[in-house]
């Protein structure tokens, strides 16, 4: 792997492949929330491990970008480390752990707590892009349903949750309606993060490598989590505070500390937690 930089193109993929991905991205941005097929390539990481996000990143990254990678909100999880060191190797770009310093952020399962700004690009790793997949396994059928905006079955499913459980029992990858037209999977972020998708000033790009799909949410686009008038969308809350920084408004991870069920709660967003910790010192 040490010879990677000598033997491979900037950002690993050849220019032609990057160009076709960028064309797909432009189309995706033009039709917010709509899944566009693309000729996804094998990457030196397994499918399902962020190859879609990596291909999107490879297509848009430039020499001047400052790159941040998070997995589960943290910069230091092994998968985040692995993807970051891959792009360090094949691009030699500057990397950061700071959300506000980054121009390009690749993420798995979280949106940073620090609000995104204009000019920033978020790249989401997507395992299953199709929001209707658990209702209808056939791609041929789901494409038809999207074309006809036939989203009734999804509302029925949510309604069944309410009759059975008293609430919508989807904790993550909670379906959203983009620009009042396309039903979209926000990738497996907790529903806590869904409101951050709405009217975000950043460009949000979604890459599913194994499923060969790209979709996007352009800046300042309406992204609405599905709900009902009498059962409005709600995010989860904790009656705990972060053990490190005391935050009560961030997404908290539960950590088991001993064999007797001892627990504590810490921010999942390590950059947010650290910068808050500093402020309060």
């Amino acid at each position: 792997m040490t010879s990677l930089t000598q033997n491979f193109n900037f950002a690993y993929l050849d220019e032609q492949t990057k160009r076709t991905i960028r064309r797909t991205l432009l189309k995706a941005i033009a039709i917010p929330g709509h899944q566009i097929p693309f000729g996804s390539r094998e990457m030196p990481l397994s499918y399902g491990w962020g190859t879609g996000g990596m291909q999107v990143t490879a297509a848009v990254i430039g020499q001047d970008d400052v790159f941040k990678v998070i997995d589960q909100g943290a910069d230091d999880t092994t998968n985040a480390v692995n993807i970051r060191r891959f792009f360090e190797k094949v691009c030699g770009v500057e990397t950061t752990e700071s959300t506000s310093a980054a121009t390009l952020i690749q993420t798995r399962h979280r949106i940073p707590e620090t609000p995104l700004q204009e000019g920033q690009i978020m790249v989401y790793q997507v395992p299953i892009p199709e929001p209707l997949r658990w209702l209808e396994p056939s791609e041929v059928e789901t494409r038809k349903m999207h074309a006809l905006s036939e989203y009734g079955p999804m509302y029925v499913r949510l309604y069944e949750d309410i009759t059975q459980f008293g609430q919508i029992a989807t904790a993550y990858d909670y379906p959203v309606m983009v620009n009042q037209r396309y039903l979209m999977r926000p990738s497996p972020i907790p529903r806590f993060d869904n409101p951050k998708l709405n009217m975000s000033p950043a460009i949000q790009l979604f890459g599913a490598g194994r499923e060969k799909r790209i979709y996007a949410v352009p800046p300042y686009t309406e992204v609405k989590s599905l709900d009902f008038e009498d059962y409005p969308f709600q995010v989860e809350t904790w009656d705990k505070a972060c053990e490190f920084c005391g935050s009560t408004e961030s997404y908290l991870d539960e950590v088991v500390t001993d064999n007797d069920g001892g627990r504590l709660w810490i921010c999942s967003d390590t950059d947010f937690c650290r910068s808050r910790g500093k402020r309060e010192e």
Binding site: W49, Q72, G73, H109, P127, A171, P188, P190, R191, E254
Partner: peptide, 25 residues
């Protein structure tokens, strides 16, 4: 199998955000 092995084995990656959300639920 290149796609299948990747997706089956991606379950080894951390999922504690999603799991936390499920745990809460």
């Amino acid at each position: 199998n290149v796609a299948a092995q990747g997706f089956v084995q991606h379950l080894k990656l951390p999922h504690y955000i999603d799991f936390q959300a499920e745990l809460n639920l």
